[in-house]
Amino acid sequence: MNEESRSAIRRDAAGIAAYAAAFGASFGAVSVASGLSVWQTMVLSLVMFSGASQFALVGVIGAGGAGLAAVPTALLLGVRNAFYGVPLTRILGRRSLTGPRRLATAHLVIDETTAMAVGREGRAAQRYAFWATGVLLFLLWNAGTLAGALGGSAIGEPETLGLDAMIPAAFLALLWPRLRTTEGRWVAAGGALVATALIPLVPAGVPVLAAAPIAVVAGLLPRRDQEAAR
C-alpha cells in the first residue's frame, strides 16, 4: 500500500468521523433531553459505541419506557455487529485478534468500519481503513456526544442540515466498489428489497438482519461461470 492510497483512506475516514461528530452531538442532546444524565450518555457512547443502538435506547426511555424495556431493541440493533465480525476476522488477521488486542478490535466493529474496510482493495488497505476509521470515529463520536450533552438545545436539528441524508449516501459510497460485479449488485438489491419489505412487519433492527440470508444463499450457490473462467 503506497502513501497515496493511505492518505486517500485517511481523507475518507476523516469525512466519516466529521459526520459522526455531528451525529454524536445530536445524540448527546437527544439523550439528555430524554432524561439521561451526562454520565449515562457518555457511558453509552464510550461502551455501547454503536449509534443505532444508542439512539434506540434513549428513544424508548425518552418515550416513557421503563428502563429495561429499552434493552431488547438496542441489543437487536447490535446483532448485526456480530455478523460483521465474520468478514472482519478474515480481513484483520490473527494478529489483531489474539489476547487483549481482540478486546480492542471488537469494540470498533460497527457499520462504518466494516463498510470502509470491505470497500478497499487488498488486505493492507482494508486493515488500515478499519483502524483509521475506528479510532477517528471513536474519538469524534465521543467528543461530539459530550458537546451535545453539555450544550443541549443549542445544537440544531440534524434534519435541518440534511445530516440524515449523509448516512445512506455514505454507505452507498463505501459499498460502491463492491457493486461493480453482477453478483454484488444482485446481493445488494436483494438485501435492500428484503429489508424494505420487512420494515412495517418486524421490530427495528430485524430488517437489516433479514438481509443476511441473501448473502448466505448467494455465497452457497454453485458458481459455474466464475469457476469455468478461472
Binding site: 454484488g184 438485501g191 428484503v194 420494515i199 437489516v208 438481509a211 448473502a215 455465497g219
Partner: peptide, 23 residues
C-alpha cells in the same frame, strides 16, 4: 464461509441504506 463472509456486508449494508431511506 469465506464466500458468505464476503457478501454479508454487501447485503446488510444495502439493507441498512434501504432502512435509512424508507423507514
Amino acid at each position: 464461509v469465506q464466500r458468505v463472509a464476503t457478501l454479508l456486508p454487501v447485503a446488510m449494508l444495502a439493507g441498512l441504506v434501504a432502512v435509512e431511506l424508507f423507514d
